[in-house]
């Protein structure tokens, strides 16, 4: 059982004896050194950077318009003129994916960030403070879990769309709304996971020890408990990116997302589904792009996790 053994050598963040003999490294340099050892993570970082570069600057190299309707070249497979083929209005899929990728990646990462920050905050507070605060925060979590999302979304559109649009402009307003909505509806699992980890960790010897040494509550959480609870948070965060990219496309079906003529990856994938048997390329590229983004982000997450693991076993 855990109680019979010390939880970790590096309970209070000091490097273990074996490593201490080597010239000391700062914690961030040490993390980077360990991240680099994770070959898949490094490769993924390169690929993801490449994807981001492509969607950010791709229009410079591939200047075709995203909405040039051409009935003479409908549903064509990949060719020199259209490397990713065309859709059912003869629009160039590569150009559309470059344009839509910016939104999909930005939404995915930003929404993940919102969900994780909110979830970790609520979970940590709930897990540290027991009693009334815990009960109240868990009530809020249960409430959000049981709210049916569709009517809530329709209500949000109805209440806020026009206001945000006039305040932040059509694109900016929609972006903020989507990120807040996706993040705001997805933080609950993170909160529950973090709370569960905290409930267990706060009773561990190393925390007791730190507490006995007079560490403040804040320091206890940030330096001692949270790093040990990061495992599930990183997994949840990486899964969240995929969820947000897909959720964005469903939102546009409720009129909440970007206008329907903006080809985000999820949207292109949805549009392609009815032609899956006759024009598989149309679905293959956005599906592949989402998969690749998710894959790389997950491996980077794995690398981070190993690098930041306070136990530093690997």
């Amino acid at each position: 059982m855990v109680s019979s053994t010390p939880a970790s050598l590096s309970a209070d963040g000091k490097p273990p004896a074996a490593l201490a003999a080597a010239p000391p490294l700062s914690p961030s340099r040490e993390a980077w050194r360990r991240f680099r050892k994770h070959k898949l993570a490094v490769a993924s970082l390169v690929v993801l950077t490449l994807i981001v570069f492509c969607v950010a600057f791709g229009t410079l190299f591939w200047p075709l318009a995203i909405n040039d309707i051409d009935f003479s070249s409908m549903l064509q497979g990949p060719s020199m003129a259209h490397p990713f083929g065309t859709d059912d209005l003869g629009q160039d899929i590569l150009a559309r994916m470059i344009y839509g990728g910016r939104i999909s990646l930005a939404v995915g990462l930003a929404a993940m960030f919102v969900a994780v920050v909110v979830g970790v905050t609520i979970g940590a507070i709930s897990g540290m403070a027991s009693g009334r605060v815990d009960a109240a925060l868990m009530w809020v979590t249960d409430l959000f879990l049981s709210l049916p999302q569709l009517p809530l979304l329709l209500l949000v559109i109805y209440l806020f769309r026009e206001g945000l649009k006039s305040a932040l402009g059509p694109e900016g307003g929609v972006f903020v709304l989507i990120v807040v909505v996706i993040g705001g509806l997805r933080w609950m699992p993170v909160a529950r996971l973090v709370r569960a980890q905290f409930l267990s960790l706060r009773e561990k010897e190393f925390v007791e020890a730190a507490r006995a040494l007079g560490a403040s509550r804040m320091r206890l959480v940030v330096r001692h408990i949270l790093p040990n609870a990061l495992g599930p948070v990183i997994v949840a965060g990486t899964i969240e990116v995929a969820n947000a990219i897909i959720a964005e496309s469903t939102l546009s079906f409720l009129g909440l997302g970007f206008p329907p003529d903006i080809p985000t990856w999820g949207r292109v994938l949805f549009d392609a589904k009815d032609q899956l048997d006759t024009a598989p390329h149309w679905a293959l590229f956005p599906g592949g792009a989402i998969f690749l983004a998710v894959l790389t982000i997950n491996f980077i997450g794995d690398g981070l996790r190993d690098a930041l693991d306070p136990r530093r076993v690997l």
């Binding site: 995929a242 496309s249 469903t250 999820g266 679905a283 599906g287 989402i290």
Partner: peptide, 8 residues
């Protein structure tokens, strides 16, 4: 599994 939506 989680990067492809269920509709797909």
């Amino acid at each position: 599994g989680f990067s492809l939506p269920t509709f797909f």
